[in-house]
Design a protein around this nucleic acid. Structure first.
Lengths: 137, 137
DNA sequence: GTACTATTTAAAGTGGACTTTAAGTCAAGA
DNA sequence: TCTTGACTTAAAGTCCACTTTAAATAGTAC
């Protein structure tokens, strides 16, 4: 079994050593053995980091990743853990997409079509709760 | 002209008084006159707040809103200010949408289809830079 | 006059995922 | 031996848009 220093793990995983220490501090990575006070990792830590990274790509927070690893009964299969967490996260991600699309609509359909000379004029367009959205700007 | 206390402005604008003080501190709202040390606002502040609010809906940061108000030559029309800022912001918002859609894809097409028993097994699927994405999970 | 509410300020707190800093320890190469 | 360079820790800093807190002052209602 390969033994790695924190620097080697960081390089192979493409992250900073400080991130690895942080994960340990928030119980997302288990504390490794030590040699003369230095952390010494089994190569399997790279698998754990790969799972952390894909979870982050999917939008999971560190707290949720901790739940993924430590928040289920030991016999709960990985597939079931992902399913529970991913269903919740999908709701959030959909909300993010909708919010961003709403911003895009305001930018394209209102702000980019503005014909006002002054921002005060814009304000009056906004504040008039007018009949036609098209005339706001 | 109507004169308003900070509390009245807050109520009418639907925000907290602390937000109004914050906007003043970051130069997004001009400092109002004072009576016995208390801020006293002209009703036109409500127009300014309306502009701030629509800018926020469009995803602008406070720094960008400050630019909108204070970062252009005085003769620059509102329409041109919006256009410059909105073009930039659209790029960012599109990036947000794409990132969120990528998350959604990982959630739906990878994590929700996981059949692994253990997370270690997941890791091996991820780490194999395999020929078929479909078999990752 | 008394109570209650609104206001004032500066400074600290919030959340999230780290990074940076400071000060010290340890190991390997010339 | 000396000098890098990597490692250790705890604590503070980062970004952002505010909110909260504390302690003091001012205005309003009775």
């Amino acid at each position: 079994m390969e033994e790695l220093t924190i620097g080697e793990v960081a390089k192979r995983a493409g992250i900073r050593a400080s991130a690895i220490r942080y994960y340990e501090s928030v119980d997302v990575l288990p504390a490794p053995s030590r040699i003369n006070g230095r952390r010494r990792y089994d190569a399997r830590v790279l698998e754990r980091l790969a799972v952390i990274q894909i979870a982050q790509q999917a939008g999971f927070t560190v707290a949720e990743i901790r739940t993924l690893f430590n928040g289920f009964a030991a016999e709960t299969p990985a597939s079931a853990r992902w399913e529970i967490l991913a269903q919740q996260k999908l709701v959030e991600v959909d909300a993010v997409i909708r919010r961003a699309q709403a911003m895009k609509r305001v930018l394209e359909e209102e702000l980019l079509h503005c014909r006002c000379l002054t921002l005060d004029e814009c304000a009056r367009c906004i504040l008039e709760e007018g009949e036609s959205d098209k005339l706001f700007f």
